[in-house]
């Protein structure tokens, strides 16, 4: 379309800056290692051989919040752990996204009592919720791809308003 049709195969692509930035953000998003409980095992299984998350750009899981863009809250967050979670979220540099993996992180899950935060969106703002107890590795990958679609739809105008 446009310039490519006239010039032929000269190795030039035209696009908008937004599309280019969003495409590069989705292709190399590094998750932060935040596995708390049983969902962490399924997250590790999603990273390992059979359901490989490296093919989506998530080659390594960075333990340091300063070097990661995505926080996958995998597991139940207790009241003692909630301040730690918020502190780690604050330490991540912009742009950052949060996937809440599993039932306990999304809504408190099986545990409706004094010790578990009923939904991690009381502590950090969540972009994608993945349901399951624990969600299959394929469900987590589906959640990650949903997040990629959300990121591809982001506009610079929204970021400027913040």
């Amino acid at each position: 379309m446009g310039v490519e049709q006239k010039l032929g195969n000269m190795g030039i692509v035209t696009t908008t800056l937004e599309n280019a930035v969003n495409w590069s953000r989705t292709n190399a998003m590094w998750p932060m290692l935040f596995g708390l409980a049983c969902c962490a095992i399924e997250m590790m299984a999603a990273q390992a051989s059979d359901y490989d998350m490296s093919r989506f750009g998530m080659e390594l899981m960075r333990p340091s919040p300063r070097q990661s863009d995505l926080m996958i809250v995998a597991g139940r967050v207790s009241r003692k752990m909630a301040p730690v979670l918020r502190r780690l979220y604050d330490q991540m540099p912009e742009p950052k996204w949060v996937i809440s993996m599993g039932d306990c992180a999304s809504c408190g899950g099986v545990f409706n009592n004094y010790a578990i935060v009923q939904g991690v969106d009381e502590v950090v703002p969540v972009d994608v919720y993945v349901a399951g107890c624990p969600p299959r590795p394929e469900a987590l990958i589906h959640g990650v791809l949903t997040l990629f679609e959300k990121v591809k739809g982001e506009k610079f105008v929204d970021l400027a308003k913040v």
């Binding site: 408190g108 409706n112 009592n113 004094y114 010790a115 009923q118």
Partner: peptide
């Protein structure tokens, strides 16, 4: 001590 139950 109450269970701390949240209404579903």
């Amino acid at each position: 001590f109450p269970l701390g139950y949240e209404e579903p």
